[in-house]
Nucleic acid binder design. Sequence first.
DNA 1: GACGCGAGTGTAAGCGTTTACAGGAAACGG
DNA 2: CCGTTTCCTGTAAACGCTTACACTCGCGTC
Lengths: 325, 325
Amino acid sequence: MSVATVSRALRGLPNVAASTRRRVVEVAAELSYAADPAASRLAAGRTSTVTVVVPSLSGWYFANIVAGVEAVCAEAGYDVLVVGIGSSHDLSRILSKAYHLERRTDGLVVIDIAVSDEAAASISARGVSLTTVGRVTDGVSSLRVDNVQVGRIAADHLADLGHRRLGAIGGEQDEPLGFEVSRLRVAGFADALARRNLSFDPTLVEGGNYSVDGGREAMVALLDRAAPPTAVFALSDEMAFGALMALNERGLSPGRDVSLIGVDDHEFSRVVGLTTIRQSVTDHGSAVARLLLHAMEAIRAGSAPPVTHLVPPVELVVRSTATRN
Amino acid sequence: MSVATVSRALRGLPNVAASTRRRVVEVAAELSYAADPAASRLAAGRTSTVTVVVPSLSGWYFANIVAGVEAVCAEAGYDVLVVGIGSSHDLSRILSKAYHLERRTDGLVVIDIAVSDEAAASISARGVSLTTVGRVTDGVSSLRVDNVQVGRIAADHLADLGHRRLGAIGGEQDEPLGFEVSRLRVAGFADALARRNLSFDPTLVEGGNYSVDGGREAMVALLDRAAPPTAVFALSDEMAFGALMALNERGLSPGRDVSLIGVDDHEFSRVVGLTTIRQSVTDHGSAVARLLLHAMEAIRAGSAPPVTHLVPPVELVVRSTATRN
DNA sequence: GACGCGAGTGTAAGCGTTTACAGGAAACGG
DNA sequence: CCGTTTCCTGTAAACGCTTACACTCGCGTC
């Protein structure tokens, strides 16, 4: 029996007699033989590897996205490589990584990092499939929540509760990763208020850096205003937790003295009763992984990869930190 | 100039004239050339890849460990593969994965999963380095916190505060991953009490499944006892958060009505003022990655890999949920 | 001035697959 | 019964590196 036949049998290719295949599979199992991945990759030119590029691996949001991607890709037989670009905001590291990734991966999931058209073109020219989360690039499948909608939901809820003086805790100007998200959410927030003929004071937006500490400081800054807001929209639950700390420190009660709404439905939001806007992050990871798998399948089949833009729904979760004014 | 010279120059091997090397590096940069990883792996037999095997990728603890490992390994030029074994408790999946890993990785970091002596032997026989976190196997470098000590610190703190009727929220019998940890922490807890001639009622231990919900239910069960404990040791912060929920639901105040101490110093512990025992999980990841790098270096050099067992310190963090009885 | 030596470079044989191509046997139609 | 077609299997050429080995210098040595 030749190596070619074995290779064909083990990979499920056609043109192998059923009896032959059975024997091959049997013996392979017995010897616990499996093709050397490096040799396969070299010969076939495909790596059976998917790479997730992510700003950071710790942090609730990224960890959950990666978990979703990993589950689906592993299930489909792909190895999952992770690349954290760390706090180094310089794109060069990402690009050099992406460059190294060249012959290293069949697919790329890029999370919350802007991919320029040229970068996307160069990646696709190398035969690597690309999908993004949180950012969209022309011609690249992506998944993102409708952040404008998120802002609107928050504003509508707070306005329905009778709040009129509203503040927000968002990203910061010099924050490459989170700023775009902040901009959209705040825009939606302001837009929904405008539709109700309510005014939104843009000076009542404080940067919170998407961290607990940042959220705390932002809330302190808001409380120190001459006329503090009666309700605050924190653009992430983590910042909302910080805001809760600030309220506690001042002896203020969330929901009674100041209403607060977050975004994410982090698992600890339940613990503190945080009203929030839920996004199912792990599901997002799974969904984008499936997008990627389809694209890779298409490329392998020689057809043009489909371009799909997923916009999963978000959902208001009412708890106790936002109450009637 | 021959391919051999280029190969040697680019990899920094000796026996290359400085001038030659300079030119090669220069031209390579210009053409943005880099060796095809698959071909290198096939020819050299090494993969420059490290694999992290972890029960789950979401969850604070695992995400942070993986982040620490990734940072160090990426820095050292290794690709980082992640394998989540999911909720499937069956070892077969792990083993089949490990088997597939055979020619796929130079090093393995196994987190909170027991590795049998035979499995360790078979892995090392394949030339793959192995380090573990949370579990120790003979002859395998590892990192684990002293869980007995963790239990003692908790008991000492609560006892110092005058508490005499103590409960605990831990893992469960049928929980393959967490039970060992629970056993040790509870043992340390009981031991420290015994040293003070205080009694510990083992029926006052409820299983909390290392989840928020589990912690909540465990606390409910404890509160429903005829004689509830005045202080509770939650074996993880996440369970402690659940316990806090249960207290809130009953209108009880943590620290005043029931004292509570957790383990981890999760970033939200600060938010709720949870007294806890800190472990620096990301640092643990970095440390175990360095252990692995050393082992792989030794193997490459032909020497026997050093076996080191790291036991990083833990630290009591006093906040407001545990107070004088 | 022949010799040995070491530094630097080139040659070529793998590494273990995949895959185009060729070949051979069985089945089928005329 | 012979020529086709259809299936299956084998042969061998890549794939792009690494590395043992051979080789060529230029130099110091006796």
